[in-house]
Design a binder for these strands. Structure first.
Lengths: 228, 228
DNA sequence: CGGTATCCGCAAAGATACTG
DNA sequence: CAGTATCTTTGCGGATACCG
C-alpha cells in the first residue's frame, strides 16, 4: 500500500495528459455532462426541469455533475431575482462555446440513430437542437423574421436574420408568425415525409397564416431519412 | 450503421433519446473512446501502440472499446498485408468525420489546462494534434511544402498547400525541410516562449536549413500562454 | 508480441427514500 | 421543489494468467 496521500479525498479522475482533447474530456467527458450542456443551450433551467430533460439520471448524479461543471466554469448557478426566488442553472460564456461542437456532434450522431433501442424518450428541446444543427447556412431571409413555435413541451422563439437562425425557449415578445404542432409531426415535415399543406389540412398543425410553416421549414435542411 | 446486431446479453447502456447528440454519446461517450479516435487520427496503429498512447487504460478496457467502436463503424480492424501480418486499427470514413469535432474540442479544452494535475503524460501525437487544431487558416503558403518533423516519439510529415495543412505519422518520401526537436521545445516555440534562433543556437533543435523552423512555425497560431 | 479472459478492489452511476 | 442520504449495481483500472 502506497504512503497514503493525506489530501482531502481522492483526486477526481483525470486523464492527466498534456493534450487539449483529453483536458476537455476531463471537464465534459463524464456521463451526462454534455447532455446537461445541451439542456441549458436554450436558456436557464431549474433543477427539476433538468431532471425532466434527462430521463434516467439520478438526482444525486445531477447534483454532482452540476457542481463539477460549475467549478469548471461551464455552468453557473444563479438565484432568480424578485418574486420567484428560485435557483436556476445557466451556461457561462465558456459553456456556450460548446454549442457549435454540440451541433456538429449531433449531426454526426444522427447517422447512427438506426441502432437505437425501440423505446426512445423525446423532448421538444432536443428537436429544436436538431433544427439548429441542420440549419441551412445557404438560406437567407430577406427581412428579419420571428416565429412563435408551439411544440409539445412548450413555446419556442425562432428568429431568422440574414443567414443566421437563433432559437430560444419561451414565447417571443412579438411574432411575425405562429405555428402549433406536435414534435413528431414537425420532425416529419423537416425530414420531408409530411407536407405543410397536409399537416394543416389534417389539423396536425395550426398556423397563424399560410406563409408561417413553409417559411419556417425552408430555414432547415435535414438529411433524408432512409426508408425503414 | 450496420444491421443492428440483435445479440443476446444485456443491452449496452444507452441514453435512449431521440436526439443526435445523445446518440453520438452512445457511440463515443464512454471513457477512452474519443481518445482512441484521437490516437488513430494520424494513421493506423497496433494494439500495443495504442496502449502506449493511452496511459492508464487497461488492456481489457481497450479491447472492449475497440470492439464497440468497430461495431459502430467508427474503427476498422485490418490485417497488414505481406511480411508484417500484424493487425492494425484505423478510422473508417465515419470515424474520420470526428476529426474537426476533436480539433474544436481540443481548442476548447486548452483553456482548462491550468487545472490539470502536476504529473502529466505527454506524447508527440498529442502535440501534433494541437498543431492541427491551432493551424492558422489565414496563412497561405506560396508553394506546396513538405517538412519532416522529427519529434520525441518519432517522425511526422507536415504538408502545407495553400491554406491547408495536413499531418501524418511517419517520414515523408521527400521533404523540403527537416526539423528535429523535442516535443517540449517545439511547444515552447509554438507558444512564443522560445525563438527558433535560440532553439537552434542552443542545440535544442537541429534543422536542415534556416528557413525550416520559421516557415513551419508560421503555419500555426497557438493561443498565448498566461504567465504561470 | 498481440491480444483475450478472469478476478479483485474501488469509484461512479442508478434507484429510491428522505429532508429543509 | 431542490436537493441529500443510503444502498445497490455497474464500470473501470490493475494484475495476472492464458493462447495464437
Amino acid at each position: 500500500m502506497p504512503p497514503s496521500t493525506a489530501s482531502p479525498g481522492p483526486a477526481p479522475r483525470s486523464y492527466a495528459q498534456l493534450c487539449g482533447i483529453a483536458t476537455a474530456l476531463d471537464v465534459i467527458g463524464d456521463r451526462w455532462a454534455l447532455l446537461i450542456v445541451r439542456e441549458l443551450m436554450f436558456g436557464p433551467l431549474r433543477f427539476g426541469d433538468m431532471v425532466e430533460g434527462l430521463p434516467g439520471i439520478g438526482t444525486n448524479t445531477l447534483t454532482v455533475r452540476l457542481k463539477q461543471l460549475e467549478s469548471a466554469e461551464v455552468v453557473r448557478r444563479r438565484l432568480l431575482p424578485a418574486p420567484d426566488r428560485a435557483t436556476v442553472y445557466e451556461l457561462t460564456a465558456y459553456g456556450h462555446e460548446l454549442e457549435p461542437i454540440l451541433m456538429a456532434l449531433g449531426r454526426w450522431g444522427t447517422r447512427s440513430m438506426g441502432r437505437l433501442p425501440v423505446e426512445l424518450a423525446s423532448r421538444s428541446r432536443w428537436l429544436v437542437a436538431g433544427m439548429l444543427a441542420f440549419h441551412d447556412a445557404e438560406h437567407r431571409v430577406a427581412t428579419p423574421t420571428t416565429w412563435e413555435l408551439r411544440l409539445t413541451d412548450g413555446p419556442f422563439t425562432v428568429r431568422a436574420e440574414g443567414a443566421d437562425v437563433s432559437i430560444a425557449a419561451g414565447p417571443p415578445d412579438r411574432a411575425d408568425h405562429r405555428v402549433t404542432v406536435e414534435d413528431g409531426d414537425l420532425h416529419l415535415m423537416l425530414t420531408g415525409r409530411l407536407t405543410p399543406a397536409d399537416a394543416v389540412a389534417t389539423g396536425a398543425s395550426a398556423v397563424s397564416d399560410d406563409d408561417a410553416l413553409p417559411g419556417l421549414l425552408t430555414l432547415f435542411a435535414f438529411p433524408a431519412v432512409p426508408a425503414a
